[in-house]
Nucleic acid binder design. Sequence first.
DNA 1: ATTCAGTTGAGATTGAATCTCATTTAGGTG
DNA 2: CACCTAAATGAGATTCAATCTCAACTGAAT
Lengths: 154, 154
Amino acid sequence: MKEEVLDAFKTALRRENLKLTPQREKIFSAIADTNQHWEVDDLMFRFREENDRISRATIYRTLDILVDYGFVRKVDFGEGRSRYEYVRGKRYHDHMICEECGEVFEFMDENLRKHQDRICDIVGFQPSKHVVQIYGLCSKCQQEVALEEKKNEV
Amino acid sequence: MKEEVLDAFKTALRRENLKLTPQREKIFSAIADTNQHWEVDDLMFRFREENDRISRATIYRTLDILVDYGFVRKVDFGEGRSRYEYVRGKRYHDHMICEECGEVFEFMDENLRKHQDRICDIVGFQPSKHVVQIYGLCSKCQQEVALEEKKNEV
DNA sequence: ATTCAGTTGAGATTGAATCTCATTTAGGTG
DNA sequence: CACCTAAATGAGATTCAATCTCAACTGAAT
């Protein structure tokens, strides 16, 4: 499974006359191994842990390639830096972000997407990328907030 | 109309024991006078044109206040810096961003919003802020792209 | 007029991301 | 296999938005 994707990466590189370097391979594996929405420093830290040293510049450059080729998606939750997510065969999805604990939840709704496309149709806009982010409180944090309030009442 | 809003700002300041300074008043007027989605440097430039000098720090600090009080909304179109928009009596709306010319179009769709709330309901997420951004080509740029392609065919 | 918490501005600082450039390397060719 | 060159890497400098620091200033309550 993972091997196949790695091969797809190699093929893509070759197609563009780019070279398969150990750094690129390591970065790719690390990413394909991660789920969720990591940021560049998470990667850096991980490499350091394994006593690999790959420079910041190389990581950024490789990520750009991976984004271009569609292996990785760059997401921005307004934190002042970018996060990335690995695009498995994963279908398109959107995000809910808990403002309390920072956790990111993925959700997907076909109709929501269609609804947006319909709106674009009406105004003659040709969409290429949709961003839907819902910020708020996840159910766990809602409970904690409720508890906190109860405590304060006493 | 504008006076009323300025009064609302003054009242809000007083309520929080904040002072009404000339800088804050100028910033507020400049903003209430602007439509569309400006960034901090636009403001800076405008003040300089009028031979007013208000420091960057003060502008950022005042914007924070205005965002807190709901007079201004901070938006992020992934350009690596923030934009702001003045919230008139304006209802909530979303954005389409043309990747060619950079223009930002507002649109509003009650049902789209309701649809999102329904999804939140189902998974038990309590939404406080929705971000919907559609990136793509505006109708004008679509035509230009089409023209360009025709030219290349010949 | 006095007082002081709140405010301002200049410049330093932070932090993400990009750029520079000398050195190294992947991988195609003879 | 050795050679060659375009592509890639890494260290550190640079950029740019945004925030912080702190001494000097000021709105507004008394």
